[in-house]
Computed example of a mutant assay.
Amino acid sequence: MTKRSSPAKAGPQHLVLLAIDLLDSSLHYPGDHPPFENFHFDIHITSKADDEKSQVLVTVKIGVHNENITRQLGSLALNCTFTMSNFADVVRLNAAGQPDMPDDLVEVLHSTALSTARGVMFATFRGTFLHHAILPMITPGSIIEDIKQ
């Protein structure tokens, strides 16, 4: 006799990336310096929901650093706007007004936003001294979302 699995939990249906908005980017050339080989990235990610539009906005902010330079070499900030057909069933706002979503949905949104940021970073920094500052692959769930108070 075959055991049947229980039905899957309700998840996002027809998840769509609606928009990618570059909010800010900057380069801070440090002057005469040998080419940079090692980069460090300061990553911040936040989410907010717009119930009226049935959208989730994920903001990614990335600072680019090098161990030999004390100041930030570059930065990038972008918004990824997502929607899904069953938004009202999956996304709830908590008492602080922040979206309360299933962990697997948060992982998908964060992973997609980080991958999108990687591509936007490459396009933005291409041909500059940060040409090789490519955001590494990041394990889903390893970035903890910044909580706005």
Rank of each mutant, 00 (worst) to 15 (best):
residue 2 T to E: 15
residue 2 T to H: 13
residue 4 R to E: 15
residue 7 P to K: 15
residue 10 A to K: 14
residue 11 G to T: 10
residue 13 Q to K: 13
residue 14 H to F: 11
residue 15 L to V: 08
residue 16 V to S: 08
residue 22 L to N: 02
residue 22 L to S: 06
residue 26 S to M: 01
residue 28 H to R: 10
residue 29 Y to L: 07
residue 30 P to I: 00
residue 30 P to N: 02
residue 34 P to F: 08
residue 36 F to K: 05
residue 38 N to V: 13
residue 40 H to I: 09
residue 40 H to C: 04
residue 42 D to G: 10
residue 47 S to P: 05
residue 48 K to H: 12
residue 51 D to G: 07
residue 55 Q to C: 02
residue 60 V to E: 08
residue 60 V to G: 04
residue 60 V to P: 01
residue 64 V to G: 00
residue 65 H to A: 05
residue 67 E to C: 03
residue 69 I to Y: 06
residue 74 G to H: 04
residue 77 A to H: 01
residue 79 N to R: 11
residue 79 N to F: 06
residue 80 C to I: 08
residue 84 M to Y: 03
residue 84 M to R: 06
residue 86 N to R: 07
residue 87 F to M: 10
residue 88 A to W: 08
residue 88 A to L: 07
residue 91 V to K: 02
residue 91 V to S: 01
residue 93 L to C: 08
residue 93 L to G: 08
residue 96 A to D: 12
residue 96 A to G: 12
residue 98 Q to S: 14
residue 100 D to P: 07
residue 103 D to A: 15
residue 103 D to I: 12
residue 110 H to W: 05
residue 112 T to H: 09
residue 115 S to Y: 04
residue 116 T to F: 02
residue 117 A to Y: 04
residue 119 G to C: 06
residue 120 V to N: 02
residue 125 F to D: 05
residue 127 G to P: 05
residue 127 G to T: 04
residue 127 G to L: 02
residue 128 T to G: 05
residue 130 L to R: 02
residue 134 I to G: 01
residue 134 I to W: 03
residue 137 M to Q: 13
residue 138 I to H: 10
residue 138 I to G: 07
residue 142 S to N: 12
residue 146 D to R: 15
residue 148 K to P: 06
residue 149 Q to C: 09
residue 149 Q to T: 14
